[in-house]
Computed example of a mutant assay.
Amino acid sequence: MACACKNKRQTYEVVPNAGRANRPAFTSSSRGTAEAVADRYPTSIVRDKKTGDAVYHAWPKGAYEVVVGDRVVLPAHKVRNDADKGPLRAAADERAADGAVVRAVSSGAVVYPLMAALTASGATLTAEQAPTPA
């Protein structure tokens, strides 16, 4: 007999190519697992399967900086794990009113905040929750 909770379980999909791929590369009921898998695919997005809203943009290992327009606010930091993302997110959130974003040094791809990353990548997905300025 099938499980009664099947339709109530929240599921997340990892979609490569900034969400423009036709099929998800991975599906999981755990958001953390989906985010970890997404980090293995540069420019991939994690989306909620039921709503189709993006919930995470991948930050693969590498160097990232916080910029406002063309001005570098926080110079390049190496990102190896989730803890390394904290100072970059904090600096971008602090200057959110000025339009600060976190971008990869090598490619220039925007990865945070989520709405800016989706817009910069040309993805047609919407974000689960748009960041609000503090």
Rank of each mutant, 00 (worst) to 15 (best):
A100I: 11
A116Q: 10
G62S: 10
S106M: 11
W59T: 09
H57P: 03
R31D: 01
V46Y: 02
Q10P: 01
R89T: 05
V66A: 02
D98P: 09
V72G: 08
E35T: 02
V73S: 12
S121I: 06
H57D: 06
G99P: 13
A18G: 08
D53W: 01
K61C: 03
T132D: 04
S106D: 15
N81T: 10
V67W: 11
R40S: 11
V14H: 04
A2K: 15
D70H: 13
V72T: 15
H57Y: 15
S121Y: 06
T11W: 13
A76M: 10
V73I: 15
K50R: 12
K85N: 01
P16C: 04
T119A: 14
N81F: 08
P60Q: 07
R71Q: 14
A58H: 04
V72S: 10
M115I: 03
P75A: 09
L74S: 12
A2Y: 13
A18Q: 00
V72A: 05
A109M: 07
V105L: 06
T33C: 00
P60W: 10
A21R: 05
V72C: 10
P75W: 04
P60C: 05
C5Q: 11
D82I: 08
Q129I: 05
V79H: 02
R47T: 02
A36P: 00
R47C: 03
G122F: 07
V66Q: 07
S107P: 07
H77V: 04
G86W: 05
E35Y: 02
G69D: 14
G19Y: 02
V46A: 01
A76H: 08
S121D: 02
P16S: 03
M1R: 12
D93R: 13
A117S: 05
